[in-house]
Design a protein around this nucleic acid. Structure first.
Lengths: 250, 250
DNA sequence: GACGGGCATCCCGATCAATGAGACGGATGC
DNA sequence: GCATCCGTCTCATTGATCGGGATGCCCGTC
């Protein structure tokens, strides 16, 4: 309703500029930003200059542009992401200390799973998830949990849309996904073997806030053939600890 | 040179809106934002609406405004803050596991110490530092390290400016501060007893990148009378680990 | 049940600052 | 030497931004 057909607005431009920065491309020239954001050279240059003056962007030693610490500060210090992270950190550390594999916290954001935190296991492989990274809802254990406990609206939207296949084991069929979601709700957790990379299995549980709403998914990434029973115990222990920190009384 | 006297620009307004959000005030109405940012009601409302459309801000269930996950994501995923944090996390966890007190990572940002990460100790007190929070350079061990290894320009600016006193032990005298900075450079670390709160002592060491520049300060917060020798050993071990992760070859 | 305060929302004409094409100089590289 | 690409600056035009004001809603208070 509010997005114009041309999509032109000050903030739209801003977002387009910010979106040109990716984990693999953290610094770039003003001209590159212009090209990637579809803005004319001189406009891009001017906008970038304003953002640098405001401290939201920074120039490095070569006068190239990168995200500014100030933007990170403003976006982080009062964000929901930080609040959830703070509540979850001790529990995640405890889980990670025992499981010794990647331990992650994800939330639902614009029909995808957004990862707020990740503690890495000893194996340096499996770098598919990053902090502030995303994964499709149907193709990760965290996503399946967030979807299974999401609104009916969200579920129908995902079931009707495309389900891109990341590996041969990714759920790419609506009927299968629907069954899987019911299973997740029955069991209270999601196990997703090989859905992202064939060598690993994700296990996730829902985390609720004081109103009972599922606000996040706590998950671990195990080697493909690892037993999930012990991991599930740990996850539920971590879940309870996080929920306590969020003010849920058991 | 580029900041106008009136300070009016699209991005300035944006920053002013974002600045109305603080750790203690994470949600607010559009009218509150307008009041705090000095913008007229209707203007604030329009700007907030645009930012919500762009996903940078969100409305909660009561239609009040908060920082959006999308802004956090954009600001975090390709930021220097995340890169440093990633490099430092394993080392910080190791330090924290042994010292069992608050372990922190701070960088220099606009003449203040900005805390990128903090692992909490068992004592739940000492909440003066937060993630994405700030402290003055002269009044914390992290700040003293960042200042001592900062540019001559920065040092002169701080020595010439006001040195607000947080406790009776805060260094508030330029001559004393100058001596302290020389001491920090000689010793290679900073000890700041009671500079923030009387019951605790901060100990910090500099962290360098591959070019030899000091890019961060690693610190712990100890009870006032704790011995700092053991902590220093741990900090230097952590420092070396972080520097290795940053690509410094020893 | 009337009243008042605070908020969200919408409207609209004047204004003014953002826009983007283009030119120039310098650095780099083939 | 030529070709590119980048940063920087200028400038006339225009279209978006601005903010006062009106309206309606919700919610306490008297």
């Amino acid at each position: 309703m509010a997005n114009s057909p041309t999509g032109d607005s000050v903030t739209d431009r801003l977002v387009r500029v910010l979106e040109t920065f990716t984990p693999s491309r953290t610094v770039q020239t003003a001209a590159e930003i212009g090209r990637r954001s579809g803005l004319p050279r001189s406009s891009a240059h001017r906008i970038v200059g304003e953002l640098v003056d405001a401290g939201l962007l920074e120039r490095d030693d070569d006068r190239r542009i990168r995200i500014g610490m100030r933007l990170w500060e403003l976006a982080t210090r009062s964000s929901q992401a930080l609040r959830l992270r703070q509540a979850a950190m001790p529990a995640m550390e405890a889980v990670q200390a025992r499981i010794r594999e990647h331990t992650q916290l994800a939330v639902l954001e614009q029909d995808e799973a957004l990862f707020l935190e990740r503690l890495s296991g000893p194996t340096s492989g499996s770098n598919v998830t990053r902090i502030a990274g995303r994964l499709p809802l149907h193709a990760s254990s965290s996503g399946l949990v967030l979807l299974a406990y999401g609104t009916r609206d969200l579920q129908e939207r995902m079931l009707a849309g495309r389900l891109p296949r990341l590996t041969t084991e990714t759920i790419a069929d609506p009927a299968t996904l629907r069954r899987k979601l019911a299973e997740v709700r029955t069991l209270g957790h999601a196990v997703a073997p090989g859905s992202i990379e064939l060598v690993s299995t994700g296990v996730a549980v829902p985390v609720r806030d004081e109103t009972g709403t599922v606000v996040a998914a706590l998950s671990v990434v195990l080697p493909r053939d690892a037993p999930t029973a012990a991991a599930l115990d740990e996850l539920h222990r971590g879940r309870r600890e996080i929920e306590r920190a969020l003010g849920v009384r058991s």
